[in-house]
Design a protein around this nucleic acid. Sequence first.
DNA 1: ATAGTGTATTAAATGACTTAATACACTTAT
DNA 2: ATAAGTGTATTAAGTCATTTAATACACTAT
Lengths: 126, 126
Amino acid sequence: MIILDYRDKRPLYEQVTEKLMLLITGGALSPGDRMPSVRSLALDLSVNPNTVQRAYAQLEQDGYLTTITGRGNYVSEKKLWQAGHENALRTQLKEVLEKVRDGGLSEEGARDCVREVYEEQGRMRS
Amino acid sequence: MIILDYRDKRPLYEQVTEKLMLLITGGALSPGDRMPSVRSLALDLSVNPNTVQRAYAQLEQDGYLTTITGRGNYVSEKKLWQAGHENALRTQLKEVLEKVRDGGLSEEGARDCVREVYEEQGRMRS
DNA sequence: ATAGTGTATTAAATGACTTAATACACTTAT
DNA sequence: ATAAGTGTATTAAGTCATTTAATACACTAT
């Protein structure tokens, strides 16, 4: 379900959080779907239950999951995370744009990057 | 000369490296200019000399500084870092673009962000 | 010679992350 | 009711990168 990258400098719980989020927003997991239990996912990833717990807690905080004690974690309705997700993406992009803009990259240069990256997506679909 | 942000999660040496780099690429420091000594900058920033040394070493590695043992660190000629700098900015931007693209942000959404951020720059100039 | 450079090394302190071992309350199925 | 499986919380220990501290050495300029 998930593959962890131990060369990545980011903490494990952050990787788990991000990958699960992508499975949800990408539609691989649908609203109402039950998530694997904290313990079982920890076993799958060869990771401590606390680490998975931390990821689940973050995902619930951000509206992607709804937790029911004793039952499990369930993917939330789209309306609960859609807006926040879109906003987070834009904020993330803008922060880097401000950084590279201050670093001297021209608006044209930035547009080039956008074009290249989204052309790349086109190739992936074919 | 530099103000450190202790709320920033990134290590100090990384902040110092980035800020000095911006002073160089931004033209506040010109090729040939002598940098403050490792010890004096460390005093200025209330930071350990090792931390400054690490920043200087990174800047030399990336071509922004030329080090002469016993004399000091000097801002390198533009040709030594110009290309690498431009490339680093593009790579940095592209990595985030791929991330938000995979997260579901449309190409139009990305273009909006570019427009907004560079409009912001226009306002700063006035 | 003396003072100021960059550089290197070793030791200790700090803090975030991770693992480990439990424990408890709740829900479901038997 | 009992047992198994949930989420949740706590405490302790270990790991690792970062940072500080204290030196030491080679080089350069005055």
